[in-house]
Amino acid sequence: MEDKKLTMYHLYKEMLNNYMQSKSEHTLYSAQQFSKEMLEKDMSPEEVVSLHKSVITELVNDPSGELLDSFDLLLEVMIGYGLAHREHLSLRDRQRQLDSELNVAARMQQSLLPNNKIEVEAVDFGVKSVPAGKMSGDYYHYFVDEHGNIGAAVADVIGKGVPAAMCMSMIKYAMDSLPEQRLQPAALLENLNRVVARNIDDDMFITMVYGSYDSKKHQFHFASAGHEPCLYYSADTDDFHELKTKGLVLGVSSKVRYEEYVRDLNPGDFIVLLSDGVTECRINGEFIEMKHIKQIIRKYKHLSAQQMVDQVYSELEKIQEFQLRDDFTLLILRRNV
């Protein structure tokens, strides 16, 4: 400790002496570098003033002592800044700790999402989900049964960040507890809604669209709990259609019936499930038009489903200048043969 102070003393003295003799810009620059070293050594502002006073006492001749005395006053003044500095240091530590806790939580959240590959001949499948912050309020889910039928869902929890993420884990575990309904979209949403309505705050809600793909009949069955409409792309006419649905968001009332809809898919047709982070993306403050999103998707339709969602994300990220305002989730399911 004393050693450290001594070294700092000598370095400072040399620098100040240099400066008083040469008044060079170069020495001023060294002083800037030196301040970084002082910060690293946790020197408080009042210690810096005290150092300056000791050094200058040695270097200048101040017979009356008035100039030197003035540093005692400055030292007192710096005490407040010293307190602020220490508070900053302790907040910085706290911040680092919170950051690392949040990173752990984010990794845990990531582990709630499926990551197995869908290998079904009839279907080409891709999904991309990116949180605006560390934690996501979006959720997606998919699974394949032994006959190659696929269940897929996208959900959006109101709000963002930690509260939304905690809510999301409830959805995940509730879905896991409903294995029989995994290919029955309406029944699944009804059951899920009862769980959510019981466990959620009065002003929270969740939107979800759930679909199941019958790999033999090539039919997509779906139901929606107040979620953004899915898109259906017809390869034959090269057209998108919004799949209009009725259905209340999850968590408002425990007695809700959901309607189930069905859409036949021809080879090359695909279904797009998305979250409102896609449709509500703003460019210079203006909301993106659905037309624009369809154009972007169409541009990449020759690629695989996974490449499509990746490319659409990159493009929307670019036009938002790499600042996502909301969690983003896009899922595409295409009939191959």
Binding site: D156, I158, G159, D202, D203, F205, V249, G251, V252, D276
Partner: peptide, 14 residues
Amino acid sequence: DSTGLGIFIGALKA
């Protein structure tokens, strides 16, 4: 936005 919508849902329940 969705948080705003949540307030109306809370008010409906109330």
